[in-house]
């Protein structure tokens, strides 16, 4: 039964897979082609015979150059990276400890607490937005990266906790018990036995959290104001949109460059990501 006829493999495998690949990647091709298209071509009429939407004969790096020279794009990239790493680290730290406690320890209200951490994930950000602005004022965090580093965990912690809790549940209790019999403390067993085993789970939670922080727009739009403190999505959107020049070239250049760091992270970790999720989704 493992031997398939060639046509079958084409119809049920290669063709659908190709459609998926093309469909998924076409917008990226579109970004790229727009980013390297000279402005003069972008001014061409829709109906013009010379209109070649799918390729360009005079590719240019002008938009990338402008992006680098006329905006503080490298700075935005660094800000986004810093904010994403810091908020991911905080969320992982909290999620790891809380996830372990909820999965392994018996204490009163454990169920209720677990549920309420999960429920915080449901609260719509549009509701929190204004009250959060008040808190940011109280702590004097306005226009600092900390305004975001401390608010992003609100939607990252519930996710990390939940995912890691699931992962911990899949690790056999016996491992810990053996270590304890050998004289390890509860805390020590957690630190030296359980956490190392949970590394794939930690990685997947971390990657996911990193992506969400990288992606966030609305808090970043309103809590930061200085041009040099913005994140990539906000900087690109708020500073490159103007009426009479075609901003599309720079906008798409920004979108591409803004995705590369995350894409790199993923290409390194995609296998861990899959195995990590495997663990947690079993639980």
């Amino acid at each position: 039964m493992l031997i398939e006829r060639t046509w079958k493999r084409w119809v049920y495998f290669y063709i659908p897979l190709t459609v998926f690949v093309v469909g998924t990647l076409f917008p990226f091709y579109w970004m790229l082609i727009t980013a390297i298209r000279p402005d003069a071509e972008l001014y061409r009429s829709w109906r013009a015979a010379t209109n070649t939407p799918f390729w360009t004969l005079q590719p240019t790096l002008e938009h990338f150059r402008d992006l680098m020279a006329k905006t503080t794009f490298p700075q935005w990239l660094w800000n986004t990276f810093f904010i994403a790493v810091a908020s991911t680290a905080i969320s992982l730290f909290c999620g790891l400890l809380a996830g372990y406690a909820l999965a392994r320890l018996r204490f009163p209200m454990a169920g209720a607490l677990g549920t309420s951490i999960f429920v915080t994930y449901l609260v719509p950000p549009t509701l929190l937005f204004i009250p959060l602005a008040n808190i940011i004022r109280t702590f004097q965090l306005g226009d600092t990266p900390w305004a975001l580093i401390l608010t992003y965990p609100t939607f990252l912690i519930p996710f990390c906790t939940w995912l890691l809790m699931g992962y911990f549940k899949t690790i056999p209790k016996e491992l810990e018990e053996c270590a304890r019999i050998d004289g390890a403390t509860r805390f020590g067993a957690m630190l030296r036995i359980i956490f190392p085993i949970a590394v794939p789970g930690i990685l997947s939670a971390g990657i996911f959290a990193f992506t969400l922080s990288w992606n966030e727009f609305i808090y970043a739009l309103v809590f930061l104001s200085s041009p040099e403190k913005k994140t990539v999505p906000v900087g690109v959107v708020s500073e490159l949109i103007r009426g009479d020049i075609y901003f599309w070239g720079q906008l798409m250049a920004g979108a591409l460059l803004g995705s590369i760091p995350v894409a790199l992270v993923y290409s390194f970790f995609v296998e861990y990501y899959v195995t990590g999720l495997t663990g947690s989704v079993k639980g």
């Binding site: 940011i136 739009l221 809590f223 708020s238 949109i241």
Partner: peptide
């Protein structure tokens, strides 16, 4: 910034007292 994003910024700035 993009003119369509001005109003949210104003609201948040006034409510948070910073901006």
């Amino acid at each position: 910034i993009n003119a369509n994003d001005l109003q949210p910024r104003i609201t948040a700035a006034i409510q948070s007292g910073a901006g």
